[in-house]
Design a protein around this nucleic acid. Structure first.
Length: 575
RNA sequence: CUGGGUGUAGCGCAGCUUGGUAGCGUGCUUGAAUGGGGUUCAAGAGGCCGAGAGUUCAAAUCUCUCCACCCAGACCA
């Protein structure tokens, strides 16, 4: 491709709307154009990147016997009604009516379509297991798109669905797919992507992993053990607390704490550590509109995902405190009206005596002993893991908190969709059985943006060669110089003949301008042809990441570049 | 959905307090010079000042309503 004819435009100024590196560079470098909230058109440079990512995904999916299919983007709502998700999912599922007044939806994921395609087709146990996948557009009417391609409403996704006749078979295939995902990320140049245990959310099912690229701009909080291989999404990370340092039991005493409504105020007033106090957090449940108070150690935060799963209800924090005889700011487990539902976090098993609210304006208790003063209570794990906390797997105090971008996920769905949609096959013994499913997704554009996030310097992206829009960029300084033009033109043709992808900057612009644009296009190998160099009998070859710079005689450039590219590609693909 | 912010040329911004029909930088076009990190000079093209209503002789500017976008949360395969 000749740069002079490429449809794109680069900007010197950082766009006002962009916050994170990948978004800034992908706008400044002319990678995409915003069409609406969370909706983008991609310029050729980005389409080339995503096509390469897709090609890698295809190879790896095919390698584990995946069969590529294509589901519709817009589909009748009836199959979503069968699975129950037409009513279960909120407004992120776009619903509309066709001309006949029939309910339609835009596909935000394709479990229903996959089951609909497979259910009458795979009717014998001999056909199992199998996996079908597609690479196609999804639309999710996200409440809040952000970060350029990191979180959008319309996007391309590789989604795969596997069907099995036994749990063991599903688990085996799940592992296989896990490995295929590791290969995909490694081949795309980000081998550091890790998988973490995750909450299955609206997808249903029990076992699920998310593939995370760790970066401070990530939207998910992760808990990682630095001593063993425990890794989990904060939402689902189990908590363990040290129960050996309980301290001494004290007498229950009511103390005056005027106007002190926060844990900080009360603890510093009483000279106690936050971990010696009980914090009360009030939630309203969606299911019956009742109020629930969570009691948790003062230094631990409530993990609302765990709470939601335990209560089996959506929870909304901090509302309607005045109802039910609750005294805001002075809530405690002793003396709370009995009709109020309570949840005790397991972090409260760690002390003999606590500071807590007395359910009376301006009073707290000290010396509250849960067993002695409250009787038997049920403890539940609804806390957030903390930095330096105890690893639930190896038991050492080595938990680290980090953030990550979710670039892929895998689920063991079980029979969530196959049974609700009535998929059956005839087993060996002649009985009708329901198969079980797994599903596996990777967002293509999000992965591209995440790679940019992980691989850039101050001047632009540094694309890994396996997904780079082109492998080599020729910068012809002074393309009005006959010698330069002749040499660069010829090199452009020859490299392409050798199967190398080349972006040829043939524009008559200043060197600085050309280099800045080259930095923004992030092509891994750069060839600089200049009048000065040719006069000295050299052509310069360098890597975008600045790890390599060599000068070659003009007639040796082609062969050296071909070898360099092959080596770089092989480094990422040989895993 | 809650809280905060911003809407003026493709992009980045000034003008708004104190109303008088719009300006700077960059990019774009043309010409000349320059030629290894966004070079220089000159001449141009480009704007229903987010939308609607109101106040006024007169609104980018004042008032009201709406919309869009961004950030933090909530939500999220």
């Amino acid at each position: 491709m000749k740069f002079s004819q490429m449809l794109t435009k680069r900007f010197k100024d950082t766009p006002a709307d962009c916050q994170i590196a990948s978004h800034i560079f992908m706008i400044r470098g002319g990678y995409m154009k915003n069409v609406g909230n969370g909706i983008y058109s991609l310029f050729p440079i980005t389409k080339r990147i995503t096509s390469k990512i897709e090609a890698i995904m295809r190879e790896e999916m095919n390698r584990i016997d995946g069969q590529e299919v294509l589901f519709p983007v817009a589909m009748p709502a009836n199959i979503w009604k069968e699975s129950g998700r037409f009513d279960a999912i909120g407004s992120e599922l776009v619903r509309f009516k066709d001309r006949g007044g029939n309910d339609m939806v835009l596909g935000m994921t394709h479990e229903e379509a996959a089951v609909q395609l497979a259910r009458e087709t795979a009717d014998s146990y001999t056909q199992f297991p199998f996996m079908i996948y597609q690479i196609q557009t999804k639309f999710r009417d996200e409440p809040r798109a952000r970060g350029g391609l990191i979180r959008v409403r319309e996007f391309t996704m590789k989604d795969a669905y596997s069907f099995h006749t036994s749990k063991e078979d599903l688990e085996q295939y799940y592992q296989k797919c896990h490995k295929a995902y590791e290969r995909i990320f490694a081949r795309c140049g980000v081998p550091e992507v890790i998988s973490v245990k995750s909450d299955s959310g609206m997808m249903g099912g029990k076992v699920a992993h998310e593939f995370m690229l760790c970066t401070p701009v990530g939207e998910d909080s992760l808990v990682v053990c630095s001593d063993c291989d425990f890794r989990a999404n904060m939402e689902t990370a189990d908590c363990i607390y040290d129960e050996t340092a309980k301290g001494a039991a004290e007498e229950l005493t009511k103390v005056l704490t005027p106007g002190m409504k926060t844990i900080e105020d009360v603890c510093s007033f009483l000279g106690k550590d936050k971990s010696d106090s009980i914090k009360a957090v009030v939630y309203r449940l969606e299911t019956d509109d009742s109020v629930c108070v969570v009691f948790i150690r003062g230094d631990i935060e409530v993990n609302e995902t765990k709470l939601r799963n335990f209560l089996k209800s959506e929870v909304y924090p901090g509302e309607e405190l005045d109802k039910e005889g609750i005294v805001a700011g002075f809530i405690g487990p002793k003396g709370l009206p009995e009709k109020v539902r309570t949840v005790y976090d397991i972090s409260l098993k760690t002390r003999q005596s606590y500071v807590c609210g007395a359910n009376e304006e301006n009073y707290h208790y000290t010396g509250l002993n849960i067993e002695r003063d409250l009787g038997e209570v049920q403890f539940v794990d609804v806390g957030k893991a903390t930095e330096g906390g105890i690893c639930p797997v190896c038991g050492s105090k080595t938990l680290k908190l980090t953030r990550g971008i979710e670039v892929g996920n895998i689920f063991q769905l079980g029979d969530r969709y196959t049974s609700s949609m009535g998929m059956k096959y005839l087993d060996k013994d002649g009985s009708l059985k329901t198969p079980i499913m797994g599903c596996y997704g990777i967002g293509v554009g999000r992965l591209a943006a995440s790679i940019c996030e992980a691989r850039h310097d101050d001047y632009g992206p540094i694309w890994p060669i396996t997904i780079a829009p082109w492998q080599v960029q020729i910068c012809a300084l002074r393309s009005d110089d006959e010698q330069v033009k002749a040499f660069a033109d010829k090199l452009y043709e020859e490299l392409q003949d050798a199967g190398i992808e080349v972006l040829y900057d043939d524009r008559q612009v200043s060197a600085g301008f050309m280099f800045s644009d080259a930095d923004l296009t992030g092509i891994p190998v750069r060839i600089v042809v200049s009048p000065k160099g040719l006069k000295a009998g050299t052509v310069e070859v360098s890597k975008r990441d600045k790890s390599y710079l060599e000068k070659f005689e003009p007639d040796k450039v082609k062969q050296n570049v071909i070898e360099l590219v092959r080596t770089m590609v092989a480094e990422l693909n040989n895993i």
